[in-house]
Design a protein around this nucleic acid. Structure first.
Length: 644
RNA sequence: GCUGGCAUAGCUCAGUCGGUAGAGCGACUGAUUUGUAAUCAGUAGGUCGCGGGUUCGAUUCCUGCUGCCAGCACCA
């Protein structure tokens, strides 16, 4: 007589044991249709599981996060079944659920899956789903499982079985003639899988280890219903539309040239304008926040990098040293040692602390060729770097200051939502217990006082100190790692940095590394995708285009453009011999925020007819009025174009 | 770096079952003098990514390299 308690608090009594499916049906037919699994006393189970004692039971429906996982996992099995049906020689390995979908890795050295294969596999999967095969769980002891898969020639499955610890029986799932080793749970019938799409094939190492053979991984996505699937595919297309590499080329913002080498960025005039605006703003904000600006060299004697430890710990990411007059020089992968040298140029007093030094420092790192990606992962980039040298008791206030500055600067670019991680001391680390504790508490204190939510990654810090990482969320909800604040107990000691304390003793300062954009290149790439190239007025390379209707107003158009330029705005006149519709289209595609149309009416009245790139008619403006309005928007870094 | 795919005009792409290539957009020239997302006509522009091989002949087939794309690995 099991007594079953449901999540809503209600209790049901049954005369005998009851399966999850029967229970769901008993509660309601709608629930039964949406059910993919269930929870029995917190444990995720198949719907076929029989409950024969009192228990808390929750039916897991397809729309729930857990239900989606079950669906995706079952779709991965369906994929494997289809692949085995079409390519019996392929060996199955693992097929987990990932964000938005799933993948399955196959070992199939004799054939590389093609996009056409993927199509065929998708069709096969749909066919197997339509067949509505029952999915059955069975438990076997490990030996039986091992010999079953060995008999099928599934060597990887045998390995997986051997590596599963413990003695308990293993579970198999069968659907049609396909059988897979799996913990489950799974949907009861393949017919429940009806909203999935295969996406790409790529390579992936067995067990994620580059020393192991490479398998072929097929990625797919699966959803609770077709509508969600369509929506997801639409989002993917949206992300593709925002691709900074594509927009960067279209708008002539930047390029990466084969002749120069991968990962090296060329800023074209239009992109360079945006960068200058960003950098000017950055400098202004830093000076206002009590930073001094530095400039340091791009290379330095190799010995410096031995002192810093980079030669030991970071050598793989550094370019090879170059020799000059018998001396080895190293291209810098980081700016920190240089700022330390400036610090060490003379004796420092506690009265000088905190010292805040910032630099837009260009560094070079030897990223592996396969890692390069547009502006997001490059070999030469400019860090908006700063180092704060302070006493232990100043840490919290300094971190609070960095957080405030970071939020203000990111906010100006339309980033208001972040994900923050605090990483604490790892097992292998330098520095005393005392300093780690003081520092970690200072970071926590600064975060809490700022009212920021954060997650703690225990043991996730660098060996030299705890850190705060901040991921920004862009316009379509993607997250990007940009800002980082790291304490460093290592470099000051390695370099023998010190200051004279109040009592005359020599103390080692605390060093804080911090970057807000992280890399100017990467941040620019994120900005392009965030705004889809439609920069707000203050960042736009061209803020306003003056478009004469005909040649008759060319002179007037030029004078309008010149006057706006004299007011400090980035205006240009388009005097091409084209119709107005053509010019509007051209500048709309260039994402120019405002277009000022001038015909005879405007010329005679000394006005312009203003239009924005969204196609809104903003009416007629006198020139001075327009200039003032745009200047105000520019100064205030307004995000919405029609504000103010 | 690894696996797979791709590389044709400035861009997007078509094409050649092996006989040195074509469109649209863009650029340029001319006509038109234009009122809110493409006026018309003409011209120029390509060692078909780079090197080697097979062949009478290679952009096409084979091969090496480079670059790009997806992912893996990497990412103080």
């Amino acid at each position: 007589m099991p007594e079953i308690r449901l999540p809503d608090g209600s209790v049901r009594h049954y005369p005998q044991e009851i399966s999850g499916m029967a229970l769901a049906r008993d509660i309601g037919p709608g629930l039964a249709r949406a059910a993919v699994a269930m929870r029995v006393d917190g444990q995720l189970k198949d719907l076929s599981t029989v409950v024969d004692r009192d228990a808390d039971v929750a039916i897991v429906v397809r729309e729930s996060p857990e239900g989606l996982e079950v669906l995706r996992h079952s779709t991965a099995h369906l994929l494997a079944q289809a692949v085995k049906a079409l390519f019996p020689e392929a060996q199955v390995t693992i097929g987990p659920v990932i964000e938005n979908g799933f993948f399955y890795d196959f070992s199939f050295p004799s054939h590389a899956f093609t996009p056409e294969d993927l199509q065929a596999i998708q069709v096969k999967m749909e066919e197997l789903a339509r067949a509505d095969l029952p999915v059955r769980r069975e438990e076997v002891d490990r030996e039986a499982a091992a010999s079953l898969f060995a008999g099928m020639g599934e060597d990887y499955k045998v390995q997986i079985i051997q590596d599963i610890p413990g003695e308990q029986p293993l579970s198999l799932y069968r659907q049609g003639d396909f059988v897979d080793l799996c913990r489950g749970p799974h949907v009861p019938r393949t017919g429940m899988l009806d909203a999935f799409a295969l996406r790409t094939v790529s390579g992936a190492y067995w067990r994620g280890d580059a020393r192991n053979p490479m398998l072929q991984r097929i990625y797919g996505t699966a959803w609770a219903n077709r509508r969600d699937l369509e929506e997801y595919l639409r989002q993917l297309a949206e992300a593709e539309r925002r691709d900074h590499r594509k927009i960067g080329a279209e708008l002539e913002l930047f390029s990466i040239q084969e002749d120069a080498g991968g990962g090296l960025v060329f800023w074209h005039p239009q992109g360079a304008r945006v960068r200058r605006v960003i950098e000017d703003y950055w400098r202004e904000m830093h000076v206002r926040s009590g930073y001094e600006l530095l400039y340091t060299p791009h290379i330095a004697h190799e010995d410096l990098w031995f002192t810093s430890g980079h030669k030991d710990f970071y050598a793989e990411s550094m370019f090879q040293p170059m020799e000059d007059e018998g001396q080895p020089y190293q291209l810098k992968p980081m700016n920190c040692p240089f700022h330390i040298l400036v610090y060490k140029s003379r004796l420092r007093s506690y009265r000088e602390l905190p010292i805040r030094w910032a630099e837009l420092g260009t560094v070079y790192r030897h990223e592996m060729s396969g890692a390069l990606h547009g502006l997001m992962r490059v070999r030469g980039f400019t860090q908006d770097d700063a180092h704060i040298f302070c006493r232990a008791d100043q840490i919290e206030e300094e971190i609070a200051g960095v957080l405030a500055l970071t939020r203000e600067i990111l906010g100006s670019f339309g980033f208001e939502r972040y994900e923050i991680n605090l990483s604490t001391r790892p097992a292998a680390s330098v520095g005393s217990d005392g300093i780690w504790e003081t520092a970690t508490r200072a970071l926590e204190g600064a975060l809490q006082k700022a009212g920021l939510e954060y997650r703690t990654d225990e043991g996730g810090g660098a060996f030299y100190g705890p850190k705060i990482d901040l991921k920004i969320e862009d316009a379509i909800g993607r997250r990007w790692q940009c800002s980082t604040i790291q304490l460093d107990f290592n470099l000051p000691a390695r370099f023998g940095m010190e200051y004279v304390a109040e009592n005359g003793a020599r103390e080692i300062p605390i060093m804080v590394h911090r970057a807000i954009f992280g890399s100017v290149e990467r941040f620019f790439g994120v900005l392009i995708e965030h705004y889809e190239g439609r920069f707000p007025l203050w960042l736009a390379p061209v803020q306003l285009a003056v478009l004469p209707i005909s040649e008759q107003q060319a002179e007037y158009a030029e004078s309008v453009s010149r006057q706006l330029q004299e007011m400090g705005l980035r205006a240009e006149a388009d005097l091409r011999n084209e119709k107005i519709g053509y010019k509007i289209r051209a500048h709309t595609l260039r994402r120019v925020p405002f277009m000022a149309v001038v015909g005879d009416r405007e010329k005679d009245a000394g006005t312009v007819a203003l239009r924005d790139r969204e196609g809104h008619d903003l009416g007629t403006f006198r020139l001075t009025e327009l200039g003032e309005k745009l200047r105000r928007m520019d100064r205030q870094r307004q995000q919405a174009l029609t504000e103010g």
